[in-house]
Design a protein around this nucleic acid. Structure first.
Lengths: 140, 140
DNA sequence: AGTCCAATTGAAATTAAATCTCAATTTCAG
DNA sequence: CTGAAATTGAGATTTAATTTCAATTGGACT
């Protein structure tokens, strides 16, 4: 469970599980899988378990470090995160018009990337592919 | 020549070629292919053909729209751009250890992405693929 | 349960990137 | 040349994220 995983991660780093970190953790995993930090902060302010903006940002970094959360996109102004626990890796299409995010996964694409890394003697450890354009509803 | 291309682009949009836009254009194409807007602005301040920060940002948007420049995603704070005139589209591998950037291009990869867009009824207009890991020199 | 101390917190200030405002200036079509 | 429309720049503003630091808290160890 994400709770336990984060706990262990903190333990390994000599950090403490505080009520604020717990609040952020809970909110992240009850939020839609994609979210931005300010949305998250607003939700937390409105919830029972509060945390300050500073703590939200600080905890978010820890969650990324722990692997429970990933930073997804940098195409707009701020960052977008996604909680990834128990979910398979995937990439994203983002509609420039309405902002919709479509997730996709392609085995072929993954293999092709492995090949490309191989022929460059590069040890790929993670990647982000973001395709921008117009979604089904927004194309004329 | 990028000069003429930008001129035409502006013409098509009913915009004017000003000395400031020219200054930005020139500096973009004499800069290293990857740059960030503040670097660019600093270079322009130091050059003969000046332009304000506002004009630098405004012109940069136009250059992206014209296709002469692309926004390259990055993990830090601000954006990174790259001038692409006369250069084929490519993606990037970034070494987490030494920061080296390796450019690569794969026809198969491009086609595969077209397929994926097609099957999602998505009109892909641009994409960014960033593979992070260890380069040849930094592995092991 | 109590002590201790490093880790943590929050409010507010700060940094940083990018955009906006608007009076003055410039471009360029006619 | 002229004039309307586009553009500019200085500085204010917005937005995202980080930093500061005195006060508080978690939890290891008795």
């Amino acid at each position: 469970m994400h709770n336990k995983i984060f706990q262990n991660f903190l333990g390994r780093k000599g950090l403490k599980m505080t009520r604020e970190r717990f609040a952020v953790l809970e909110e992240v995993f009850s939020a839609p899988s994609h979210f931005d930090p300010e949305q998250l902060y607003a939700r937390i302010r409105a919830s029972a378990l509060k945390a300050s903006r500073a703590s939200v940002y600080r905890t978010l970094s820890l969650l990324v470090e722990s692997g429970l959360v990933e930073k997804v996109s940098r195409s707009g102004r701020g960052n977008i995160y996604e909680h990834t626990y128990g979910r398979r890796h995937h990439d994203h299409m983002i509609c420039d018009v309405c902002g919709e995010i479509i997730e996709f996964y392609s085995e072929n694409l993954e293999n092709l990337q492995l090949d490309i890394c191989g022929s460059n003697n590069f040890e790929g450890m993670s990647h982000t592919l973001e395709i921008r354009g117009h979604c089904e509803n927004c194309r004329d």
